[in-house]
Structure formats: C-alpha cells, structure tokens
Design a protein around this nucleic acid. Structure first.
Length: 959
RNA sequence: GCGCGAGUGGCGGAAUGGUAGACGCGCUAGCUUCAGGUGCUAGUGUCCGAAAGGGCGUGGGGGUUCAAGUCCCCCCUCGCGCACCA
C-alpha cells in the first residue's frame, strides 16, 4: 500500500502548497495561510546537487532526508521553515556527459534534472517548490554576472573602518577614482592624477579591482583544456577532476582578490558554528603566519664588507626573528631573481662541498635550476627528507651582527611562499639542520630549554619553547636578546629591525588569489567586452544576462595531457558573430570584442542561498528585507552572531572550495551593502557517507553485489556468486563496482517511508555507514506495526479505542515525547527512532490501542515517515495535514515514575536490584538496600565503611 | 611530522561519571501455517554452573574516584585533511 499512500500525499502536499514558506514581503508572502511574522524563521539548506547523468543512488539522499526531518520537526515546533532545493547545473561533468552523448549540454542537463526531480519528489521531501531554480536559468545567470560586475566595479580599501570596528572593506571603484582626482588619496607611483593620461589612469584603477585580469603563472591543464584554481589542483600537481597533469604557465586570466579577505576569512571562523575539522582545513588553506620580513645586504665575499653592485640584498620572511643570531646561511628558491646575479668566480671561503663540482657559480646554479625544474611535484615530495642545493657565490650580511652568511639556492625553499628566500637557522629548524649537515655549515643554538645550553641535544634542531641564548650584541647600538622568552625576543628584535629600516613585522598567507576564468563552454559568460586598447569594460547592467552563444562545437579544445606548451582556446571564441558586438558604452556605438572565457562552476554555488529567498526577484540580487529576515544575525535562536543559513548540510569535500568561495562573495556583498549578515552559513553540518560492500571474483572483476550469497561455516563467513567464491571489500557505491542500490528500488520494494526510516536509523548522521539492504526490513516492520496499531489489516477499519490509556502507557508516551524532542533537536534521528519503536512495541503489547497514546506517536513519527503518518492521522479523523500540527509536548506529571529500580552495589559491583518508590528517603533506601539477601551475602562479616546513596537510583556499599 | 576524529557483541550502533550493549539486523526456540514467507512470543556479550549465583568484559598500560566506555597521563591501531609554508 505504500506506493498508493505516498503518491497520494505527495500530490496533496503539492496542490495545497503545504510546504510554502512565507516571506514577510514581496512575491511569496503566502505560506499555508500563516503569516511569516508570527513564527521564527528557520532557513535550512542542502548543498545543492549536480544533475549527473547517472541518477541517484541510496547514498545521495542521506543529507536531503536529514534536513527534511529537521525541517518537518521545526515546522511542527512552530518555526517558519524555508527549505527548498535547486540545481548546480553548469560545469565540467555536465559538459562531458553532453559531449559523450553528442547532445547540447542544456539538453542533457535538463533531462538529468527531470530525472533527479522525479527521484527526489518520490522521497516526500517537504520543499517549497516555488523557490527552486537551476544555476543555468538566464534569470539566475543575470545576477551571477551582476555580482561579477560588482567585484569588477570595486576595490579593497585596507584603511576603511567597518561597522564592526575592523579595518578594510570593499568600496565602489568610482570612489577610488574620485579620491585620486580630488587628491585626497595618493596615487601609486607618486604622480598626480591629472598628470596621468586616460590609459594610465585606467591601469592604476584596473590593477586594484576585486575581479581583475592579470598575466601571471597559472595552473594550465591541457588534458581538460582549461586553467584551474589552486583549490582544484591536488598536492601532487594534477587536476582534481580527471586527474590530468597540471602545468604552470604564464597566461592572461581573470582573478578574484580573495587574498584581501584572508584575515577576515580566518577571524570570522570564530563566529560560526562549523565542525572544527572544516574550520581547521580553511585556516590551513589560508595559512596565515605571523613573523617578520628581514633584509640581508649582500657582500661579494666572506671578508669584504662592501655591497655587491647592482644588487639590493635579499628580503627573507621568518616566523622566528628571535633566532636571527643563529642564522648561519641563507637559502633562496631556484627561481629567485638573485640567482641571476651570481659572481663570475667562486669567492674566497667557498668549501668544496658547496660547488656541486662546478667550476663557476654560474654553471652550478644553471645546472641546479635545470635539475630542480625537471622534478615533478611527486618527486619533490618523495625527496623532502634529503636536502640538495648549491652555493650561489654570494654572501649575505646578518643585520644583527654583520656576520657573513653564504647564500645557497635549494628547492626546499619555494618561490611561491613568503619572499622565496629564507634565513637558515639550523639550530632552530629541522630542515635547515639537515641542510647544514649535508653542506658542512655551522650550527648555533639560540634557544634552549630554560636557557640551559647543556640541556640541548646537539644532534638535532631545537624547535621547542625556551629562553634565548647566544644572542648578544657585538656593539653598543646592537640588540641583545639573551635571557628573553621567545615571544618577547620576537617583539624586541622586530622593533630593533624596524628602527634601523632592516626589517618589519609582517603576516604571510598561503592563500593565493582565485583564478576565475575557464576555457570551457558550459558556464556563465563574462559580462565583459574589450575595446581597442584591450582593457576590459563592463557590459551595462541592463544588458544582462550575457547569454551563452550557440557554437559549432561546444566540446573543449583539449590537448595531449602532457603537452605543457599548448594554449587554451575558449569554445566561445568559435562564434565570431557573438564575439564581435556593437555597443554604446557612453561614447557612441562602437564595435567591441566579448570576453570568451566562462566562469568556474563555483560561481553559481557562491550565492544560490540568497536566490532561494526570492527566485523571481528582478530588482535586487536579494531584497534587503528578506535577507535580514532569513539571514540576519540573531534573527532567531539558532542564528549565530554572524547570521547566515541556520543549518547547512553537506559533505566535507567542499571544505576549501565552495565553502571558502561563498564566504568570500558574501563578505564582498556585505561590504557593498547588499547583505547585512557577515557569513553565509551560520551552522554547518557534514553528513557521513553511505558506503557499500563490493565483491570481486578470482580475476579481480567486480560481480553484481545483489546476487552474492553469504555462507556461515563455523565462525568463518564466505561469499559466493554463481557458485564461485568471491572476496568482499568495503568502500564507495558505484557503477564500476556493481554495488549500486538506487532509491527507485527502495521505493518499489519498501516505499519511501521505510527508506527514510532506514537511512535515519542507521547511525549518527555524521558517521559513514555501510548500506545493508537486508536490514531495511527492520524499518518496514516498525511502520507496519504502527499501521496495525491503528488500522485493522483485513477490514481496513480504524481500531483505536477512546478509553483512557492506563498509567504505565501514559508514562511511556510522555517519556517518549520528552526523549524524542531532545533527540530531534540535537539532530539524532537514530536514537529518536529507537524511542519511537520502543513506544510502538509497547502499544502493540496492549491488545487495544488508546487514541490518546497513539496520536502523539503518529505525530512524532511524521518527520521521519511523513506519508504513513499523514494517512494514519487522517484515518484517526483529522481533516488537515499534520505538517503544521504542534509537535507533542511532554507533561511533567507523567514523567514521574511510579516505582524505580534501585541498583545496589557492593564495592562498586552490582549485587542486587530493588524496586522502590521514586520519593524514597535516604534512610529507607539504605535499609532496604542492606536488607537485600544477595547484598547481605556479599557483605558477609565485613565491616561497612561507607554507604553512598543516590536516591532513588543507586546505593553503593563500601566494605 | 602537524591538525581533526574514531576504536564497545556476529553486524549497524546505544549509554547527564551511577544497571555497559537501548533500538535494529542476524541467529535460536516456540506459536500461527499444508508448506515457505509474513505475523506473534521468548531468548541471544563471554566463561563456569542444573540453578541460585559468580569470574571476565568497551584497543593496551597506568592513574583519579565509593563508582570510569565516559575524567587525567602514556602507548597502539584505523580513517580523514594538510605537509620542505620558513
């Protein structure tokens, strides 16, 4: 009967608008007859799906069911629940699927969405259907492009004070131009604004935009035919999608100035309720590290004090300026420009081990550079332990004591981090120590535990905390750090360096600006055109969206995966009629050239939560009033100090991609006054994954998991398929492993309610768990038993009785209400379901089921099994849907037990149980406990030293 | 190496410092049934014992406590993330 009941209720919910969420204003003010203002808003959201061609397996809906359960529960608790689902429909997989099947990406994507909508609808999700959309919809693309233009049209003013008291925020670029023109802001380069020609003015402004074009080394992936963001490249230098090699190439590309927000992206993590793991990943990715930049002058030899002509010196970054006296050499990255300035011959003081056997420094560094460049990322990682490098023939001068320190180049120093140069302190850094050992360089320890140098292990670097030693000034104007703790020494030496112009305290980040252009077809076109001077110009807002053109072939131009010298060729460039466009940008109609790049698919997912608030708004990106109502800080109990979505559920795989990008966009929109909240997602929850067993035959080929038989043979379990023994493994569910179970199979065999109950009862939501189809029957038995407690199976008549429930049943009901309410509020549907089953089993044992007991049970079951609950509710005589029915509340008078089991322990071990009144006095309980025969036997002749009494549940007799 | 998390029956998993194993799967027995399945009832950590009862038991080792799966210290294993980041 499940199918008939479920489809009927799904139709009714849809036709009655049961799950419409009411907006306080605008187009969507109706929400099932209730006014938004009467109820606290609760905005719950899933990471929206990618409509893939494969359809869903039973693992995908786990999060959707979880949010649905929470949403239905909160709705019954009186919240105005906003829950809907859209589709993230641009991007590589959709495009690849289209290319494979020879159809237009829009055709396949839309077909995939139809199938996914069907699969999801059959699950009975309580979504507001009016608020769904796909990122490919032109009305949505319009606003995605509009946000891009906001980025293009603004800059980051590091001195501007924000309302929250911090400094730095995005401002419209027109204000920057105005300040330059008025002379209230100094023009970079020192010239006056009026002295610059129009092109120079544009260059000054363009270089400061939040969305900017730059020629810089980027990640070029020939196998995908596009450039990629750092976040899309794995640590071994391959594309996250497709696993193709990625090469560094200097190309002219769009970037987003996310680095301007690095500090706020780190600091504001403290304001949001996210898993520590995800926060740690974001902190790690941003990689803020505080230290100092120190300049070392260069000198031609160990003894000569004169500077090297034409060379400025080397700027290093260090987090340990306190160890400056221990810097016995320097290392620069092979790509560092100073390597080009090596002297003609090895200077005096060069040790044989430093030259790599080469006759001149030039030869040595050239050979080393070639060697380093040939190493792949994987090789580099594998060699991390052993240190290679070569002397450059240059010497630096240590600013604290003037000591000459040889400058090496080595690939363990990376050009992309800090200044690409370090001062090496072998006494305080394990890597520098290894290098010093390999190249026979001196080690000076400048920190020792408690300042005691004898406590040091001379065989390794000391990286721990302690007091500074061996750091005394040689002259009167020097700095002395001896005896200081590390933190004080850092401050002291930075002040000293600062005063002498030799260094300054700085902060360095690992985060790089976000490479934002892709050379693919299936994405948002840039709303940008180029004039004759090649500078980018915004397409006027009233001409948005810029639609994707039809092209002869939308497949990306891909290359041999290892062809590093290939160059990107955007598919949009194939339609010359589209590329050349006539526009009037204020100085009459002219012909412009469109930008042929598309945006990465992250663009659409950066702001979709805002569009849910009103997907038909064509006035604003989001109405300020709606944003404040649904996302504003402290708008309800679950909203944190930064505001944002009340509950956002999704997998952990987006920790540093989508979740970082969306936070960045939100902060820009905040700075520009479009949203009031500081953060997009106030609370984040990472659900676990549904895993599955897979089976392989003796050739290692996967066999259909559903057809495998299990055999128990005296303690050992074996598996066979078609009579042959197969081996079992555990992991992902996937087509290639032949272990996919689809929701459709579940609907057909068990119905959506059973499927939902099973998924929710498998274990805690944040845990990954194995799918076991044979265990689904437990959920089915529960629902069938519930059904039979209300309906006679043969006659179909309702069998509940109107007589009052007995006292024990009432206590069971109210105990269950109290427990389930807590479990649901804490997002533990597994234990909530356990309580429901317990109560249901109790009712089963009664013979006849009283209405006052079963109605609360039906209501409590509704969030997890909504269809059967609605049906039973109706059969119990209620005309209205129970979706908005108040969740039952427990009455205290029924929470008091009539009698309780008191555990009697002797020396902490349970030796007896006695049944007592819950209000028993300590004296009576003590007497009753000591009278228990087994307790008496255990005590025997021993003397009772102490009796711990926790009335009425526990007595512990200590002998 | 650093960070986050987890180790409990045959399996998934429950346990505000106070009865370890809720609930479910599986398994055993009984009832219902021509039979299978469904349904219902009872049992099911492990060892000793006919039973009453007792020994052992939450990765390992210490500790705090009347009492520890839970708190503290040390160690082991596994998963995830980051990693020559100065």
């Amino acid at each position: 009967m499940a199918e008939e009941i479920e489809l009927r209720w799904q139709d009714r919910w849809e036709s009655s608008g049961t799950f419409y969420a009411a907006n306080p204003s605008g187009a969507l003010t109706d929400g099932n007859g209730e006014h938004a203002g009467d109820r606290p808003p609760f905005f719950i959201m899933d990471m929206f799906p990618y409509p893939s061609g494969a359809g869903l397996h039973v693992g995908h809906p786990l999060g959707y069911i979880a949010t649905d359960v929470v949403g239905r529960f909160r709705r019954m608790q009186g919240d105005n629940v906003l829950h809907t689902l859209g589709y993230d429909a641009f991007g590589l997989p959709a495009e690849q699927f289209a290319v494979q099947t020879g159809q237009h990406p829009r055709t396949t994507t839309e077909a995939n969405m139809v199938n996914m909508r069907r699969q999801l609808r059959r699950m009975g999700l309580a979504h507001d259907p009016r608020r769904t959309f796909a990122t490919i919809d032109p009305e949505y693309v319009r606003w995605t492009q509009w946000i891009f233009l906001q980025m293009f049209g603004s800059w980051y003013d590091v001195d501007a004070v924000r309302p929250d008291g911090g400094t730095g925020r995005a401002r419209p670029i027109a204000e920057l131009e105005a300040e330059y023109a008025e002379g209230t802001r100094a023009v970079p380069g020192g010239r006056s604004w009026a002295d610059l020609d129009a092109g120079e003015q544009r260059d000054v402004v363009d270089s400061q935009r939040l969305a900017y074009v730059s020629e810089a080394p980027v990640n070029w992936c020939p196998g995908l035919g596009t450039v990629l963001a750092n976040e899309e490249v794995t640590s071994d230098g391959r594309s996250e999608r497709g696993n193709f090699p990625v090469f560094q190439r200097s190309l002219r590309q769009w970037n987003m100035r996310i680095t301007a927000y690095a500090d706020r992206l780190v600091d504001d993590l403290d304001l949001i309720d996210w898993p520590e793991k995800v926060k740690a990943m974001q902190r790690n990715w941003i990689g803020r590290s505080e230290g100092a930049q120190v300049r070392f002058a260069l000198q031609p030899s160990a003894s000569a004090q004169d500077a090297v002509p034409g060379v400025d010196g080397i700027e290093v970054f260090t987090t340990r300026p306190d160890t400056l006296f221990g810097a016995t050499f320097m290392v620069v990255a092979p790509e560092h420009p100073v390597v080009d300035q090596v002297p003609a011959a090895w200077p005096e003081g060069t040790k044989d081990a430093w030259t790599g056997g080469h006759a001149t420094p030039r030869e040595a560094v050239t050979a080393y550079r070639a060697e380093a460049a040939a190493k792949t990322a994987v090789e580099r990682q594998a060699d991390a332990g052993k240190k290679t490098g070569v002397f450059t023939g240059l010497f630096g001068s240590n600013p604290v004591d003037g000591a000459a320190v040889p400058v090496f180049t080595a690939d363990y120093v990376l050009m992309g981090y800090g200044t690409g140069a370090i001062m090496a302190v072998p006494g305080g850094d394990a890597r520098d120590f290894a290098f010093a050992e390999a190249f026979d360089l001196p080690v000076i320890y400048t920190v020792a535990p408690g300042g005691d140098v004898d406590a040091l292990d001379r065989g390794e670097a000391f990286t721990g905390d302690g007091l500074v030693v061996n750091s005394a000034a040689a002259s009167d104007d020097g700095v002395t750090l001896d005896g200081l703790d590390v933190a004080t020494a850092k401050r002291t030496v930075i002040d000293w360096l600062d005063a002498r112009g030799a260094g300054t305290g700085t902060v360095t980040y690992r985060l790089r600006d976000w490479l934002f252009s892709r050379q693919r077809y299936w994405g948002e076109p840039f709303p940008i055109v180029y004039g004759e001077d090649g500078r980018p110009l915004a397409v006027p807002e009233n001409q948005l969206p810029v639609d994707l053109p039809e092209v002869p072939d939308y497949a990306p131009r891909v290359f041999d995966a290892d062809d590093a010298d290939s160059s990107p060729e955007p598919p949009l460039g194939r339609n010359q009629d589209w590329v050349d466009v006539e526009l009037d940008l204020g100085d009459g109609p002219r012909t412009y050239r469109r930008d042929t790049n598309t945006m990465p698919n992250w663009a659409g997912s950066c702001w979709y939560y805002l569009r849910y608030l009103d997907p038909t708004d064509d006035e604003h990106v989001v109405s300020p009033e709606l944003e404040k109502y649904w996302l504003g800080a402290h708008h309800n109990a679950s909203s944190g100090p930064a505001g944002g979505v009340d509950l956002y559920v999704g997998g952990v795989e987006h920790a540093v991609l989508h979740l970082l990008y969306a936070r960045f966009w939100h902060k820009v929109l905040h700075d520009l006054g479009h949203v009031s909240s500081l953060e997009p997602f106030g609370k984040l929850f990472n659900q676990g994954y549904v895993q599955a067993y897979a089976f392989r035959d003796d050739r290692g080929q996967p066999v259909p998991a559903a057809e495998v038989e299990e055999h128990e043979d005296g303690g050992t379990t074996t598996y066979t398929w078609n009579g042959q023994t197969v081996t079992r493994e555990y992991g992902k569910m996937g087509k290639s492993l032949k272990n996919v179970v689809t929701p459709d199979e579940m609907y057909e065999q068990y119905g959506a309610d059973t499927f939902r109950v099973y998924e929710m009862s498998m274990g805690p939501l944040d845990l990954s768990r194995p799918w076991e189809t044979r265990a689904v029957v437990g959920a089915q038995r529960f629902l069938q038993r519930l059904w039979r407690n209300v309906v006679d199976e043969t006659s179909g008549r309702t069998t509940v009785v109107e007589t009052p429930a007995d006292a024990a049943t009432l206590r069971a009901v109210h105990r269950t209400i109290a427990d389930v309410t807590v479990e649901m509020a804490e997002m533990r549907p597994n234990t909530a379901i356990a309580r429901l089953i317990t109560l249901n089993n109790h009712l089963t044992s009664l013979g006849e089921v009283p209405r006052e007991a079963v109605e609360p049970l039906v209501l409590m079951t509704a969030p997890v099994a909504p269809h059967i609950a609605e049906e039973l509710w109706q059969r119990l005589g209620h005309a209205e849907s129970l979706a908005h029915e108040p969740f039952p509340t427990a009455l205290d008078e029924y929470l008091v037990e009539e009698s309780v089991t008191c555990v009697v322990q002797v020396k902490g071990k349970v030796r007896g149980k006695i049944t007592v009144s819950p209000s028993i006095s300590e004296e009576d309980l003590r007497a009753a406990a000591l009278a228990e025969p087994n307790v008496q036997r255990q005590i025997g002749d021993a003397e009772i030293r102490k009796v711990i009494i926790r009335a009425p549940k526990l007595v512990n007799v200590v002998v």
